[in-house]
């Protein structure tokens, strides 16, 4: 009998580790570098006003966003995004747990929730915009109204699918209600909850951008549309790049958190696959 073989770290000769690192970097950076080069060369030969070369975009990016406008436009946007996403996750998990545990409530709300989820979130923007005006509250409401559903519905499903034997175990050891929630129901539902959170984050980002683009006079989305309308193509591209970076950053943060929260889940999956 041995403990986990997964816990045993295998040590390799150092030069091979180096080789792998260099090879890995080559694979990681090779294609992006090639693509940027092709784009740069193409942009310097073909004269398309809409596709400036990456160097020009880089310049515009730095001059536009590094400085006070980062505080003025980017930070408030990110704050709205964070508040909206956090509210969606909190509301989704709390409501989803209640609805998932109380069967009649679930039956009562299920068709309604299916419908509400199916509404394309951006159509809510004009509705909320006219009720709340171009305020922060409007943007946050829009984000919550759009990104709540994936968290909510996934939590309901996850809570309902709690394993029967695990539930019986909790009952047989007379776990209290709070203990069951904290140590059984929520962890058991966490893979589904994280799936919902991932979808919610991408919807939240989309809604943040659009609500700022069309119903705001500040923020990242507003600036990008402003540049576009004034034919400041380089700056507009810089904005698009910044949005891309925010998307990537969000994805990285999410996957770090997910890997930590669902360490056990990936572990069991790996064992089952082995």
């Amino acid at each position: 009998m041995t403990t986990s073989s997964g816990a045993v770290a295998r040590s390799r000769p150092r030069h091979r580790t180096w080789q792998r690192l260099v090879g890995g970097a080559g694979f990681a950076l090779g294609l992006p570098v090639v693509l940027l080069l092709v784009w740069g060369i193409w942009a310097s030969f073909a004269v398309s006003p809409f596709f400036p070369s990456p160097l020009v975009i880089g310049d515009a990016f730095v001059s536009t966003w590094v400085g006070p406008s980062f505080l003025q436009d980017v930070l408030p946007s990110l704050a709205r995004l964070a508040v909206g996403a956090a509210l969606s996750i909190l509301l989704g998990v709390v409501l989803g747990t209640v609805i998932g545990l109380v069967r009649w409530l679930g039956d009562l709300l299920e068709p309604l929730l299916e419908f509400l989820r199916a509404i394309p979130p951006p159509v809510l923007i004009p509705i909320v915009a006219v009720l709340l005006g171009p305020t922060d509250a409007m943007k946050i409401t829009v984000i919550v109204a759009g990104s709540l559903w994936p968290v909510l519905l996934n939590t309901i499903d996850g809570v309902r699918a709690t394993d029967a034997v695990m539930t019986e175990t909790a009952r047989s050891f007379s776990l209290t209600r709070t203990e069951r929630l904290r140590y059984l129901v929520l962890p058991a539902a966490s893979p589904r909850i994280m799936t919902g959170v991932r979808q919610a984050l991408s919807i939240a980002l989309i809604l943040m951008v659009i609500s700022e683009m069309f119903f705001s006079s500040s923020g990242l989305g507003y600036r990008i549309v402003y540049f576009q309308r004034n034919y400041l193509i380089d700056q507009m591209w810089g904005g698009i790049v910044l949005l891309g970076l925010i998307g990537v950053l969000l994805a990285v943060v999410f996957s770090l958190v997910e890997r930590r929260v669902l360490r056990w889940y990936h572990g069991t999956k790996e064992v089952a696959r082995a």
Binding site: S202, L205, I210, M213, I240, L243, G244, G247, V248, L250
Partner: peptide
Amino acid sequence: PIPSVALIP
């Protein structure tokens, strides 16, 4: 992860 709506402009 790039939000496609960023491409609208």
